[in-house]
């Protein structure tokens, strides 16, 4: 790692001030992506501003049909939260599939959402559930938040404070994990929401997480694997790398979507 200064912020305001004064400074949450990036010398921040302990970024609250989770909430806290398991079990099970136990003990929801890794799981949940990303400056709808791989609507120095998930009628997430890393080779989150069926795909998009509108329309009429079977997902915008070709990933998306639909309705 290149040298940097580590500073632990005591309040959200302090973190925001420190970041505003130094454009080379970066916020540090769980560090499960940032620290490996630094170890590989792929980034050279002047300062790391530790925000993981901030009270403003903590807590899980279920109120008026909205589950709000603090950005610094660690994956294991979400996975084991009785509230999340009761009102949004699909999210509890999604976070249980992230990487491995040691990583889930450190990694945070806000860090993953802000990083927007194209193979991360959380962006699929945020997008499918039509969640709102609450920052220190504003509220951003999920549809506007994710803007391509590793790119979000966040401005420099803007921090994710909370993510608010409107509770769906039903939801399920299925992913085909890379056997070594656990990252999604293809992952599909389906949610039956007040605004209709929403389908978000991660791991497969050439520009990161995306909504699959044809599947949303088909599943609105018939929530089943058979409804997905009839669709074709154009391979043009699908990611291709050493783990899989476009066509292979497009097929995996269909299989994962079919399984998620079947998990919701029980219909094959």
């Amino acid at each position: 790692m290149y040298a940097f200064q580590y500073r632990k912020a005591k309040t959200l305001q302090e973190a925001v001030d420190w970041l505003a004064k130094d454009e080379e400074a970066r916020p540090l949450s769980g560090g499960m992506t940032l620290l490996p990036t630094l170890k590989a010398r792929l980034a050279q921040p002047s300062q790391l501003i530790d925000i993981a302990g901030l009270a403003e970024l903590a807590g899980i609250e279920n109120k008026n049909g909205v589950l709000t989770i603090g950005a610094a909430t660690r994956y294991y806290q979400i996975a084991t939260s009785p509230v999340v398991r009761e009102v949004l079990p699909a999210l509890a099970s999604l976070v249980s599939t992230v990487a491995d136990p040691q990583v889930r003990n450190r990694g945070t929801l806000g860090g993953s959402v802000a990083n927007n890794d194209p193979a991360a799981d959380s962006p699929a949940a945020v997008l499918a559930l039509n969640a709102t990303v609450i920052t220190n400056k504003r509220e951003i709808a999920a549809d506007d938040f994710f803007q391509g791989m590793f790119t979000t609507a966040l401005e420099p120095g803007e921090l994710v404070v909370k993510v608010a998930f409107p509770l769906p009628r039903a939801a399920a997430y299925c992913k085909f994990p890379h056997p070594a890393s656990g990252y999604a080779v293809a992952g599909v989150f389906i949610a039956q929401t007040a605004a209709g069926v929403r389908v978000a795909v991660t791991g497969a998009g050439a520009s990161g997480v995306f909504r699959w509108s044809e599947a949303e329309q088909a599943l609105a009429k018939d929530m089943s694997a058979a409804a997905i079977d009839k669709l074709t997902l154009a391979a043009d915008d699908i990611n291709e790398d050493i783990h899989g070709s476009r066509e292979y990933r497009a097929q995996l998306v269909k299989v994962m979507a079919g399984r998620a639909a079947a998990a919701i309705s029980g219909k094959k």
Binding site: Y6, K8, L35, P36, D50, P101, Q102, V103, N105, R106
Partner: peptide, 20 residues
């Protein structure tokens, strides 16, 4: 792997300063 506040973590991916 070590335990930090009772949870297993990979100590190669945590700063000593974070463990203050």
């Amino acid at each position: 792997t070590v335990h930090v506040d009772g949870r297993a973590v990979k100590s190669c991916t945590m700063l000593a300063a974070q463990a203050d």
